[in-house]
Write a protein that binds this DNA or RNA. Structure first.
Length: 254
DNA sequence: ATGGCCTCGGTTCGAGGA
């Protein structure tokens, strides 16, 4: 089974690209972030016509997450039950015996921002919840936009990013904490080409100059990591007309 | 160059993203 994650930066704008990508890559599961649409306006019919069942949780203007699946989705949970949050950033469901958690981690804006405090406390709440979840669901996958570049090799120009959000030590420590809990970064389980990223700034020809960050990740519990035979970043949709600034990450589970 | 670009809401600009 193939599971994937993609921050689409507005599903309303990106629906044609999502449908095209699914036609080219009929993955079993696709987790979406930044759908930016209220549930009443979610493009359910179009995605169902493409062969997918969908669980979604949106809000006006910002955030919003969804899970698309070729198989039934059961036990859907919206948001972290241990962390009160107005913002719609988490949706979970069980598919083919695998617990899928789709997450849109807060950006944090800057190190001196209230949004950075929120990001760190949000991640703490995530840790707490996952400790419970991994007991209940040994086959657990956490996919999404983490807004954390785990290491300097995940940053096009580490020196230029020093002191900025997405690479700060507390954020990276929160990512390491997930690894200490037993989760494996699927991408790093395999040998990968250097300078491969999942996000590029729209400005200053960021993509053409490969000025990117690897901030979208698939983390797998130990039993799932043992079943994972590949993990790739698909840069193709980033080259299309009117792209998202993120591109999909795909893992293969045997 | 405390910017550039994209999306949204809602009007022609500000907020937020990363």
């Amino acid at each position: 089974m193939k599971i994937a994650t993609w921050n689409v930066n507005s599903l309303k704008v990106r629906l044609p690209q999502v449908l095209q990508w699914l036609a080219d890559n009929p993955v079993d599961v696709l987790c979406l972030q930044e759908t930016k649409t209220v549930d009443e306006k979610f493009p359910l019919a179009e995605l169902e016509a493409a062969g997918y069942q969908v669980a979604f949780s949106g809000q006006k203007t910002y955030n919003g997450v969804a899970i698309l699946s070729r198989h039934p989705i059961t036990d859907v949970v919206k948001n972290n039950p241990l962390y009160a949050d107005e913002q719609q950033r988490i949706i979970a469901g069980t598919i083919e015996g695998v617990r899928i958690i789709c997450a849109y981690v807060p950006n944090g804006q800057s190190l001196d921002s209230d949004k950075y405090i929120y990001k760190l406390s949000w991640l703490k709440g995530l840790h707490k919840w996952l400790e419970q979840e991994q007991k209940q669901y040994p086959q657990l996958a956490l996919l999404g936009d983490y807004n954390i570049a785990p290491e300097d090799r995940d940053v096009h120009d580490p020196a230029a990013w020093v002191g900025q959000v997405l690479v700060s030590e507390p954020e990276r420590a929160a990512f390491v904490r997930l690894q200490e809990m037993g989760f494996t970064d699927a991408f790093r389980k395999f040998e990968q080409p250097p300078k491969l990223y999942s996000w590029w700034d729209y400005r200053q020809m960021g993509f053409r100059l490969n000025r990117g960050l690897r901030i979208d990740h698939i983390l797998l519990s130990a039993p799932l990591a043992a079943r994972c035979s590949a993990c790739v970043i698909d840069k193709v949709p980033r080259k299309w007309e009117q792209p998202s600034d993120h591109t999909p990450v795909v893992a293969t589970i045997d």
